[in-house]
Design a protein around this nucleic acid. Structure first.
Lengths: 161, 161
DNA sequence: TTGATCATGTTATATCATCACGAGTCAAGA
DNA sequence: TCTTGACTCGTGATGATATAACATGATCAA
């Protein structure tokens, strides 16, 4: 299975990754969270890969760099990142992806291309609002949400046509 | 972990289950899909339980009734139900729930109470529309979507207050 | 420097899901 | 009627994902 980039459009990847990492550090400091070596490295790996990555692939990379070799090492690092909004879990893929807008309040919306397996994080403001409304009608108070769509990205749709 | 009902509000359960099962049969016939004994029984079990159920719990019940004892038995039956819109997969719970409105075009929206573990299926029209719009802005064509919210249902919110 | 808290690592196990294969079922057409 | 092809259901085996439980070491405030 191919492992394409996290966003469908081209962009200055080096810049965006460095940028996010910087903001991540600031955020962690601000919140008193400790961005320890494993955690920081896990985030870097996610940013470098620039795509959704499974916990065991993360574990392989971390252990190859001298960190622990057992699943909890990866799961804990990833859990930390998710908790602090530095990464998201993509449930449909059983995978994790670095958050591209850490700090900005947002519940993520993921667009998953079934053809190229690319994953993009899109702004979800309208979706969140609609979700809150629908839930409120059932007397339900939303705290966190998962919104994932499977379909075709522009490039694959054009290739298919 | 408690296993509360699929909907948060009281309702005539016997009626709703029978009703859904009836519509499921009509749908299957209409579409040339074969609602075989395992499949039908799996749907009945989901309807009777009236909550989200994992594949292995389903397997236990099916095998106790003389069906096969291996995981594919449950997974295949559930896959069939999901494919034909008779059930939904609740990814956050790694579980499946009978669809309460088979036949009616709808992508599901699930509300998962973190306190009582209840799961409710809510109408998602507005959410789907917003999702389509947000995706279109990224040039992405949505085919299927997963929308799941974690939070507090009315009863648990009141109990907490 | 002591005690509370958190981080990291380990071993072991739990849970969820699929692969590959063979036998039986069923309906359409020669 | 007999074949044929698609589908269904069962099996054993394995793969993939995730957590439990516990020990050691780091950090930091009192």
């Amino acid at each position: 299975m191919s492992q394409p980039p996290l966003a469908f459009e081209d962009h200055d990847h080096h810049h965006c990754a460095g940028d996010v990492l910087e903001r991540a550090e600031a955020l962690a400091a601000e919140r008193g969270a400790r961005l320890t070596p494993v955690r920081r490295r896990a985030l870097e790996i996610l940013l470098e890969a620039h795509r959704a990555m499974g916990a065991y692939e993360m574990l392989d990379r971390l252990s190859a760099e001298g960190f622990g070799k057992q699943p909890p090492v990866a799961y804990r690092a990833l859990e930390f990142l998710v908790e602090h909004g530095l990464a998201h879990r993509v449930r449909r893929l059983n995978a994790f992806a670095a958050c591209m807008h850490p700090g900005e309040a947002h519940s993520p919306l993921f667009l998953i291309c079934r053809s190229c397996n690319g994953v993009a994080e899109a702004p979800a403001t309208g979706v969140q609002a609609a979700l809150g409304t629908a839930a409120a009608q059932a007397g339900f108070a939303v705290e966190r949400s998962t919104v994932e769509a499977v379909g075709l990205c522009r490039a694959c749709a054009e290739a298919a046509a």
